[in-house]
Every structure is written in structure tokens, then in C-alpha cells.
């Protein structure tokens, strides 16, 4: 994953609360290998009717090149399915601005270079009220936590750990391997201190 500090693109409003992970990607699409791309599944049952025809009034269908979503509280609540983030990222979304996010969704987002930017509910109200149906230009500055949506300048909150990760495009596994000695020592200690914490051999056979 490559890091980023500034993004310029197009913002669109998704005027709904609690867009959960089951809406972001319905479960039936989740057996697809990632290499096939998850963009078409994003918000599938809201974007397409039962016959598979795009719902013209749905914001993402009106503004197909959108890269910044502005939406309401509790975005990404629900399951741990990272596929919800894959769908957003593969569709081309780089940042979501909302008053609150599901915790697991937000960490999954950061692990895939997608910014979950927390913005005051009042500011979201104003942004959504201002946004034309055709969307507006968007500029996000990760380093100083500011964004410009249309002609409105706002600030957003992001955990400093996550900000650093997004900017550097860090891979946690690489970072963790630097602590290999500490992990190995901890394991030795642990096995000595709490042998009970390791599964007993009893039921421990592989299924035939």
C-alpha cells in the first residue's frame, strides 16, 4: 500500500445515517476473489434495482467519478468484513467524512489507504446542504487535518496513529517483524508463566 498526504477529487453526499457493512457490500458478493475488483458491488442494492438497472437518482450513479463521500453518523457499523472497504476503494473512494464510524470498519479502512475522517455533525449538515447534486470539488490534506469541499474549508479528526499510517503507507507486518525478538522473548516467558494458556493436547487432532 502506498501512502498519501493530499488528495484532490470530487465529493458527493450520501445523506443517510448508519450505512452498515451489509449495505456497503451485500454478503452474497463476498466469495469473489479480490483480483476481480469489488467496485461494482459497492452499495449494490441501493445503486441497482432488483433487475440490476442503476437507480438514476442514487448519488454515486449521478456522479460516478466521486472519490470523497460525505455522509452521516455510524458509517460502516456492523460486520468486520474488510470487503466493505475493498468495495469503496475499488470504486475509487479515498476518503469518507462522517460524524462517526464503526470501529472495525475504520481500522480496516486505514489498512487499505482509505481515510475515515471524523467531522462534527453540524459541519456535515452544512456540507450536505451545500453540495450540489453534481458533486463538488474536494481537497483533503492529511498532514494538517483539513479539507476543502466546494468553497467551504473544514477540519477533521483522525487518530494520530492512523494519520501516520495513511501518510507512510505502512505495512504492519513489516513493522512488527522489527520486534521479532521481543515477541519471541514474550512467548518464552508466557509459556513458563501461564502454561495453561496454551491448548492442552487432548482434543488437538486434525480432522480426518
Amino acid at each position: 500500500m502506498s501512502g498519501w498526504t493530499r488528495h484532490e477529487g470530487k465529493a458527493v453526499a450520501l445523506d443517510r445515517e448508519s450505512i452498515d457493512t451489509d449495505q456497503l457490500i451485500p454478503a452474497r458478493f463476498m466469495s469473489t476473489p479480490r483480483s476481480e475488483g469489488y467496485g461494482p458491488f459497492l452499495l449494490h442494492d441501493l445503486r441497482f434495482d432488483a433487475e440490476g438497472t442503476p437507480v438514476e437518482t442514487f448519488p454515486l450513479n449521478r456522479v460516478s467519478e466521486s472519490s470523497v463521500l460525505i455522509t452521516r453518523r455510524n458509517f460502516g457499523s456492523g460486520s468486520s468484513r474488510e470487503a466493505a472497504v475493498y468495495a469503496l476503494v475499488d470504486f475509487g473512494i479515498r476518503a469518507v467524512l462522517a460524524p462517526s464510524f464503526g470501529d472495525i470498519f475504520a481500522s480496516n479502512a486505514v489498512n487499505n489507504g482509505l481515510l475515515p475522517a471524523q467531522v462534527d455533525a453540524g459541519v456535515v449538515d452544512a456540507l450536505i446542504a451545500d453540495l450540489p447534486e453534481t458533486g463538488a470539488s474536494a481537497r483533503i490534506d492529511l498532514a494538517d487535518g483539513t479539507a476543502r469541499i466546494g468553497d467551504r474549508s473544514i477540519t477533521f479528526e483522525i487518530d494520530p496513529i492512523w494519520r501516520k499510517k495513511l501518510i507512510n503507507g505502512w505495512d504492519d507486518i513489516d513493522l512488527t517483524h522489527r520486534h521479532a525478538d521481543a515477541i519471541a522473548a514474550d512467548r518464552v516467558n508466557r509459556a513458563r508463566r501461564s502454561p495453561w494458556a496454551f491448548p492442552s493436547g487432548e482434543g488437538h487432532q486434525t480432522t480426518a
Partner: peptide, 12 residues
């Protein structure tokens, strides 16, 4: 945890 974290736990 999500898939990236699952991979991390598997590996470390």
C-alpha cells in the same frame, strides 16, 4: 478484526 489484521495475526 478485518482481513488485513487477520493476515497480521496469522503471520506474527
Amino acid at each position: 478484526i478485518g482481513a488485513t489484521e487477520v493476515a497480521h495475526v496469522l503471520a506474527t
